[in-house]
Amino acid sequence: MRTPCKEQTNVFNIQKYSVHDGPGIRTIVFLQGCPLRCPWCANPEGQPFTSVLSHNQNLCRRCGRCVAACPKQAICLEEDGIRVDRSACDLCGACVTACRMDCYKVFGEKKSVEEVLKDVAKDENFYFRSGGGLTVSGGEPLAHPQYLLQLLRGAKEELGISTAIETTCCAGEETLRAVADYVDHFLCDIKLVDSGRSREVLGVPSEQILKNIRILADEYPQKSLLLRLPVIPGYNDDPENIAAIAAFIRSLRREIPLELLAYHEFGKAKYTNLDMTYEPEIRRVAAPAEERMAELEKQFETLGVKVVHT
């Protein structure tokens, strides 16, 4: 019997009927907070380790109710719309309640492991029928070692369902080893191999990331491992990086499949709502065409890497 879990952490989304982050029909639990700062991140609300307020200007009809409701006077109505002074905001949620148009939303809510498991359990029929289960994503799930461990253990031991984590692998290796027993499927990003480039673009060096992937590949041969490369034109699709990724994968002790994910800009609107800058827009990054993706796939295959589509 495990001790009842009172551990809480910030969860910013629980998404049901997810069908491409691990096998079968899955529920993805998104934990808030990430050590990386990928400029193309599709879930920027998941980057900070604390809750974050989002304001959708498009829905706003400038009634000023939120301005009046804010106890910190952090909101003002300007000519071009609502402006939130984020340094003054303490995320009390008064604006969320006051707004009639549902413009405001606080991302990230403290949730206990128990609470999350209860929600995940609701779809158990669908998991059993399809071989699916729980996928923990983020943010970076490994950034919440205790919580993650209890969540995964609960899913395995109490619900008896399959588990997966979707991770950047940016974590200490003992953290990884601690949870590995409770994970069936690892979905690991591989973005940039060169550590200098990695630090420059993602904000973290690549050594530990690559080391962790190697640990999973070499020391946990029974675990399913899928590497995923988000193809972001101009950031990481240069021949050097492609070659380096291929060389790295080939150097692993078993054949690890690679999935290529084409860049998309679905996350763009979120940046505006969070008052963040969306760098790919400034750099005019366009989604790669089908031909380009096919070409990259071919390149990898020529370099001896098995490319898969899930």
């Binding site: 009927y17 069908v19 491409h20 079968g24 029909i25 029929n125 669908f126 059993f128 029928r129 399809s130 699916g132 084409a262 089908e290 589509h309 899930t310």
Partner: peptide
Amino acid sequence: TDAYGRFDHLRGTRFADMIKSYLVDL
């Protein structure tokens, strides 16, 4: 469908599982 609009067999299978789960299990 896949990113290019073609029927995606894998997604179709999940979808079929969802249907079966609703009709048979639930």
